[in-house]
Design a protein around this nucleic acid. Structure first.
Lengths: 128, 128
DNA sequence: CGAACAGTTGTAGAGTTGTTCAAGTGTTAG
DNA sequence: CTAACACTTGAACAACTCTACAACTGTTCG
């Protein structure tokens, strides 16, 4: 094997400044930051757990606190992060505040990723 | 709209220890941790940018470094995080190492979230 | 009104993360 | 074998994050 390049690797020695293909960003920097924020909000096990709970329906802070055995204020803080990234919405009913997933997109996203993560370990015979 | 409470809010004073509905976790703790890891890996603007670039095709580290004007080792570190969470895969070809999205699920997930984040701001007239 | 309940928010400290520089590994060419 | 290139990894440090306690706001009840 000698002509390893039939897919156009970077030139030879200095692959730069003379012909960049149309590899522009498909989304703006702001959208990218919002998306990253969303991912980061979901990227904590305890917060993800809350989202998972809400996947099954609306809950108020004290109910969640009961279910997870965590401090009320801890739950509130976690929900705040999720709310900041628009992953959940809030609704007040008397003394209680009920939280729910923001919309169907969020629910779909969660279901997809949780399913993916629950899949068997996919033992690659060759990969790492 | 008056009898707002037909959805069973938490009891009255102390909603606990006597009748918890089937609100068990749908996924195990390990799956939850994997999912959170995945989200966290994608939850950084610079790493998400890399994923976005890879959405358009395989790239080697130096190409990415060129495109983003970041240090080669910085790119490598970022890719390592993505690889640890199985978001990207690696392939060696001579002196170059090419990275690509791990699979279609990842590509779909990215497209979905980036599209969601690019949507108009959804000005809620009543929400917060 | 004031007490009690439900949540939120300020804050501090432990822990985690991201970047960079330096040094190391793997691959090809001479 | 040596040099050069392409990347990876180790270490250090600033920046950020998560939790829990305390103090505060909002709501209902008597």
């Amino acid at each position: 094997m000698m002509q390893e390049s039939d897919r156009s690797p970077p030139s030879e020695t200095t692959p730069h400044s003379h012909a960049d293909p149309p590899r522009r960003a498909s989304v703006g920097a702001a959208a990218l930051a919002r998306a990253a924020g969303l991912f980061r909000a979901a990227g904590d096990p305890s917060r993800l757990r809350l989202l998972e709970l809400l996947l099954q329906g609306e809950l108020c802070v004290s109910e969640i606190s009961e279910l997870t055995s965590d401090d009320l204020s801890t739950i509130s803080q976690r929900l705040r992060v999720l709310r900041t990234e628009h992953l959940v919405i809030r609704r007040r009913e008397g003394k209680h505040v009920f939280y729910a997933l923001a919309d169907g997109h969020v629910a779909d996203l969660l279901r997809a990723v949780l399913a993916h993560a629950s899949e068997p370990a996919t033992t690659h015979p060759d990969g790492d």
